[in-house]
Write a protein that binds this DNA or RNA. Structure first.
Lengths: 236, 236
DNA sequence: CGGGACCTTGATTATCTTCAATGCTAGTGG
DNA sequence: CCACTAGCATTGAAGATAATCAAGGTCCCG
């Protein structure tokens, strides 16, 4: 499917799932949500997602999207991951070349209308609360990422990221209690964790060897979740 | 002065300076600001600033405050610095033991009232815009910090932090074009930059030796600002 | 003049990166 | 069905970067 291809029937399922995990949505709100999510777009994997006009807000409907900083000399840092239900933060940051990239094939949609409508018409409703919580989670994740990169060892960093991804995928109904899909390549992981690809590979081996995870075929099985939590150093 | 000592005449000068650097404030707005900033508190250096009740917003009037994550095993990360004019972000982050510490002697004040009043009564006024810009800067700095810790070398990290601090102190009128106060100890710097104290010391020596800065007596003089900007890798 | 906080230094070790190959696997076209 | 390819994963060796350990040194303040 071509990048940026217009979708006439955007899949809002994962989005609904995530939002309602924060606050229960009424049937009326679900209708509002489905109707308000317009102009869904499909993006092939590994493609830049061009910026939307300022003032518009977009959400990820399916697939994984990365907020990426690219250096002129080739270095690269993924600042955050956007999973289904997350809002993209497209505001520029002075001094950084930021952009959004689809890490898997993905769908995004303009949610400007639903967002402002739910804020205006029912500021205390479940939908409005859910959006606020989504933003709040974003802020929290950013804080955790600073600590992760700053003070955790490669091993701890990797463990804590895996736990965060599990948590988030559980929320959106993609993961069960002890396993989750893992669509990221080791290179993508290295760009998130700020490690070299080679080192990521070795850390993953170590996690496997220590009996904490099984990592095969784009899937992670958590063999010893309590031990992994200890290894992560961050409570999460 | 005792930590938490009540101030009856909070010094709003630096706060005004910072806010008006974002948007010009009318005389009326200045009055609102000065009257609305109530219950200023003085904190001795190196003291924890107890959390305010949820829902209240506080700003730094003078001095430097750090948002600190403390690990059980002694590791520590300063997530962000709050300089005069900055708002404290006291919302908890799941998995992190966060707190605010005065890095120098400092004054903080409850600005809940002014903040909500300026939002409610004059959402398009200079004061409201200034507060929004303050929040926006906060978000931008957090993004830059992730890239800094993730992909910059110790040398680049240090250079870029110094530049950011210069920029910010210029804004609040504390620094001139080529120098600034530098109240942080090397240990505090190490907690921000996620380096060991010893290494911070060596990097600073290197920056001095390379003729980029002069660092003495709690003051940094920028001898070659263009070269420092190159060394910082981040444009800022 | 003593003490404490901060800065500086050298030596050693740990962590992580880089470089350069090699292996694996899924998809493609003959 | 079988090469062939391309992207991804893995391995070993060597080197860079930063941490740790253990002393001193400096400066300020009482």
């Amino acid at each position: 499917m071509r990048a940026g291809h217009q979708l006439h029937l955007p899949t809002t399922h994962a989005l609904e799932q995530t939002l309602s995990s924060f606050a229960p949505l009424s049937a009326a709100e679900l209708v509002v949500l489905r109707q308000g999510v317009s102009a869904g777009r499909a993006h092939a994997a590994g493609v830049q997602i061009e910026a939307a006009p300022p003032g518009t807000r977009r959400a990820v409907l399916s697939g994984w999207v990365g907020r990426v900083n690219q250096f002129p000399d080739g270095r690269r840092q993924i600042l955050s991951l956007c999973l289904p239900g997350d809002l993209l933060d497209e505001r520029p940051v002075c001094g950084l070349h930021l952009g959004h990239f689809s890490l898997t094939s993905a769908q995004t949609a303009d949610v400007t209308a639903v967002l402002s409508a739910s804020k205006r018409e029912a500021p205390d409703g479940g939908l409005a609360k859910a959006w606020r919580d989504v933003e709040d989670e974003l802020r929290e994740r950013q804080a955790r990422q600073i600590v992760r990169l700053g003070r955790l060892s490669a091993y701890e960093r990797t463990a804590s990221l895996l736990l965060e991804l599990h948590e988030r995928q559980r929320r959106s109904g993609q993961a069960d209690a002890t396993s989750m899909p893992m669509p990221l390549t080791q290179e993508m992981l290295s760009d998130i964790l700020a490690l070299s690809v080679v080192h990521v590979n070795r850390i993953l081996q170590q996690l496997r060897h220590d009996g904490l995870i099984v990592y095969r075929a784009s899937k992670v099985v958590f063999s010893d979740l309590p031990a992994l939590r200890v290894a992560a150093a961050l409570g999460l």
